[in-house]
Every structure is written in C-alpha cells, then in structure tokens.
Simulated scan of single mutants.
Amino acid sequence: MEIIGRGFIARNLEPLAAAHPDALILAAGVSSTVGTSVVEFRREAELLESVLEKVTADGRRLVFFSTASSGVYGAPGCGGREDEPVAPSTPYAAHKLGLEETVRQSGADYLILRLSHLVGEHQRGHQLIPALVEQIRAGVVQVRSGASRDLLDVADMVRILDVLLATGVSGQVLNVASGYPVPIEAILDHLELALGVRATHEVTESTPGNGYVSTERLAQLVPSIAELGFDADYYRRVIDARMLAGLVERAAR
C-alpha cells in the first residue's frame, strides 16, 4: 500500500506497507478534533482532491480517515450509526463530513473509516490521552461534565484495516471503534491511578450526549473483532498497556 502522511496513524500503519498494493492510505491532514483553522482545512481538502485524481487514474482504493468524535455522534439521542443523518456540532466534524461527501461523489473506489479516539505509540501531544496526561501532571484538568469518549488502541485499528482491505471491503462509510463510550471522569480516574497523581478537576457544564459509536456494521464485516476484547473494561486495558510501555508518557512530553 501507499501511505501518505508521516504522523501518528501513518507510522503505526508502516507494518502493512508491503501489503495491499491496490490501496492508497491518506493518513495526513487535520488531526485535532478541536481544530478550527480554515487554512488547515483548505490544505487537507486540496490534498484530498489531488489524491482522488491519482486513485481515479490508476484504479486503486482510497482509504480516508474521518471521525467518530462527539462532534459527529455526540448529540443526545444519537444512535451512532453510519447510515443515520448527523448534524456536526464542531468545525472539525463539519469539515470531515464534507470531505466524506467529496470522496463519495468522486467516482473513486473508496473506504471511509470514522475513527474513535485512538491511543498508542507516536501519538501527538494535542490528542486526547496525551493531553489529559499533560494536564494531570500540571495538576489541573479541564473536564466537560457529561462527556464520554470511545477509546481504541491504534494497534487494533491497524488489525481491523488489514482485514477490511484483505477482504475487499469498499464503497463503505464504516465506524472503527470499541463501541463502549466511557465517561471522561472515568478515563481521568484511571489515568490518575496509572500515573500515581491526583489533579484538580475544573468542571465545565456541557450538554450531555451518550458518545455511543455503533460497531454493528463493523462486526458484520470483520467478525474477528470479537477477539479484540471490546467490553466495558477495554479502555482500562488500553491505558494500562500503553502506560506500562511508557508510550503515552513519552507522547505527552
């Protein structure tokens, strides 16, 4: 496969570089769910247009990474399904959903993956877990009351993508997540336990949403996700494994 990008996801996909020669992976662009930069959004849109021209010309399948963040699925009552209408609540979500439409209308062979919050090696400091670790170390954490996040080990995402490409899945918008939303307070408690540090929590009231990301379609296409251990305690195992390896700590420095 050809991998475009040099960041967190691209580096974790390197073990698959020699596989799936008919795929081009676009792993570059805006990576912060709180991003609002019009310049960065435009740059990613222009990159996508050039990549779509490339895969349309040579017949390869484009894998485009979108978002399953609360900006897409965080509204109260949202079912977290790929086939239901969604109203983006953040500029980042609106941007990614707009790029999804560009891909769908392009005529190219494609696979769009809406990713939940990935955790793992090479992660950038602004992403969820490294950012929380940094705040905990500093002694004060900003908490949005009622917020939930679905954590997914990046290694599990790579395994899932490998299966999807090996089985020829295309023309799909697909959630890739654990399917278990975790209250942000629970994530913080476990991070603090792992770090041996207690921080002050400054709570901001927000409209609660269930943060649920449906994995029903994913389970149908990749039955082997049953082997990945997705359950209510999965997030604890992900945090523990990454803390044990020192990966989250290094990312946050």
Rank of each mutant, 00 (worst) to 15 (best):
S106V: 01
A94P: 01
A10N: 01
S116R: 07
I136L: 10
L115P: 05
E84C: 09
Q123V: 04
R159D: 14
R217C: 06
R124N: 14
L113F: 05
A177H: 00
A17Y: 00
D153R: 03
G71R: 07
Q142K: 15
Y212I: 08
A186N: 13
A155C: 12
A131G: 09
E14T: 13
E227N: 14
D189E: 13
L111H: 08
R237M: 11
H20T: 11
S224A: 15
D189K: 07
T215C: 07
I129M: 11
F64W: 13
G5C: 03
V55F: 03
T33C: 08
R236A: 08
M157Y: 14
L52D: 03
E84G: 07
G171P: 06
L193Y: 14
E205F: 10
L52F: 08
L99A: 06
A245N: 14
T67H: 03
D240H: 02
L161V: 06
P208I: 03
L52V: 03
A166C: 09
L221G: 04
P91T: 04
G120Q: 00
L48T: 01
D189A: 13
G120I: 01
V158F: 10
E84A: 11
V143M: 09
F41P: 08
R198K: 15
R60A: 07
H122L: 11
S145T: 02
A241G: 13
L62N: 01
L228G: 01
A75D: 10
E121M: 13
F64H: 10
A23E: 09
P223N: 06
V140E: 14
P183L: 00
S224N: 09
R114G: 06
G59Y: 05
S37M: 00
L244R: 15
A131E: 05
E100V: 05
G35Y: 03
D83Y: 10
I184A: 02
P88H: 04
A219W: 04
E202C: 12
A19T: 14
E185L: 12
P76F: 05
L48W: 11
H190E: 11
E82Y: 02
D156C: 04
A194N: 15
L247V: 13
P223I: 01
R149H: 13
S69V: 12
Q105D: 14
R114A: 02
D156H: 09
R236K: 15
R81Y: 08
I239P: 00
R61A: 09
R217W: 10
L26G: 04
E44Y: 04
V248Q: 03
G139I: 08
K54A: 11
T36Q: 13
S116V: 07
I136K: 04
P15D: 05
D83K: 10
L118S: 05
V39G: 00
L164S: 02
S31M: 10
Y235M: 02
A23I: 12
L97H: 11
V38R: 15
R6E: 15
V39K: 14
R81S: 11
H122D: 12
D240S: 06
V34G: 13
R236G: 00
R104A: 10
P91W: 01
P88D: 06
Q123T: 06
G209A: 04
V63T: 10
